[in-house]
């Protein structure tokens, strides 16, 4: 996710990849459940490709495979069966690529990638580093471009990006490959909206209770307070001339301030009173209803015992 966006030449229209957390969950789970002899797991990614070239990866499933001496056996039948089943639940999610565990691209990836190129147009390859080699880039996305082995010219070699190391050719070591795949890294965004709703902290923990009736308003208010304090500290510093004011931040602050409704105290009191009364009335009503329910039960059973 820390990867900078690289202009991708000739790699189709994939601009960036957005990965839903469920995919991370699924990949980790399948890695934990892999066969003893297996070194890594692969799986199919499902999702949609937006018009602006952003690939949304929304779902995934593991696919059994076997790697030996540069040969790869993917359980195609399993893959087909699973995709059929998935399409019945959600026809909008199509194959968009595949994932594997491991850091970066390895030679056999070319073969698998070629297989997925038959399954969909411009497959993306997402790698999930389970060895935590580079903590800032655990999940990476790649797009592949098929090259004829002979025409791999010097210009391609020269174009290897600098420090990002976002490019790797995986031609060597493939016994029967007639083509090579040129992998190029693309930007990857993790979307955690859904996970945040559950609570990232409780989800990431190895063992946690679910906070359903979250009494978290206090925590949220504290966060809000912290942010306000930070903002006011910044403003004070600028006013005092200690720091140079940033116009952009100033505009944002002005926006935020203008979104606060300017109410007089009596107006506010009226509003507040009304809302509070609504809430209290509703509470009262539901209490009465509950009481009614209990009463009905008591009376009913009492009369029925006769």
């Amino acid at each position: 996710m820390g990867a900078a966006f690289l202009p991708v030449h000739g790699a189709g229209k994939v601009a960036s990849v957005r990965v839903h957390p469920v995919v991370v969950f699924n990949a980790c789970d399948s890695y934990v459940r892999r066969q003893e002899t297996q070194e890594r797991v692969i799986g199919t990614l499902l999702g949609t490709v937006r018009h602006d070239g952003v690939v949304e990866v929304k779902n995934s499933y593991a696919v059994p495979h076997n790697e030996q001496n540069g040969q790869v056996y993917v359980d195609v039948e399993f893959h087909r069966a699973m995709i059929d089943l998935h399409l019945r639940v959600n026809p909008a999610e199509k194959i968009v690529g595949w994932y594997s565990t491991g850091d970066g691209v390895v030679p056999t990836d070319a073969l698998i990638h070629e297989f997925y190129a038959h399954e969909c147009h411009n497959p993306v390859h997402v790698t999930l580093d389970v060895t935590f080699a580079d903590r800032d880039r655990l999940v990476r996305a790649w797009v592949g471009q098929s090259l004829a082995l002979g025409s791999k010219d010097a210009s391609k070699e020269a174009e290897k990006p600098d420090a990002e190391g976002g490019e790797a050719s995986a031609a060597e070591g493939i016994l029967n490959a007639t083509t090579a795949i040129h992998f190029q890294e693309v930007a990857l965004v993790n979307t955690f909206d859904a996970a945040e709703r559950v609570g990232v902290a409780s989800l990431a923990a190895t063992n946690a209770d679910v906070v359903t009736d979250g009494d978290d308003l206090g925590a949220t208010a504290a966060k809000l307070r912290g942010m306000l304090e930070k903002a006011s500290a910044y403003v004070d510093a600028v006013v005092a001339g200690k720091t140079k004011g940033d116009a952009e931040i100033g505009r944002r602050l002005a926006d935020a301030l203008s979104s606060v409704p300017g109410l007089t105290k009596s107006q506010f009191e009226k509003l507040f009173g009304e809302s509070a009364q609504d809430a209290l009335l509703v509470t009262y009503l539901s209490n009465v209803t509950k009481m009614q329910l209990m009463l009905a039960e008591k009376l009913q059973t009492a009369s029925l015992l006769i």
């Binding site: 991370v24 980790c28 789970d29 890695y31 934990v32 389970v130 990431a204 190895t206 946690a208 209770d209």
Partner: peptide, 8 residues
Amino acid sequence: RIANSALL
């Protein structure tokens, strides 16, 4: 309760 593998 929510449980996860250590890896995850």
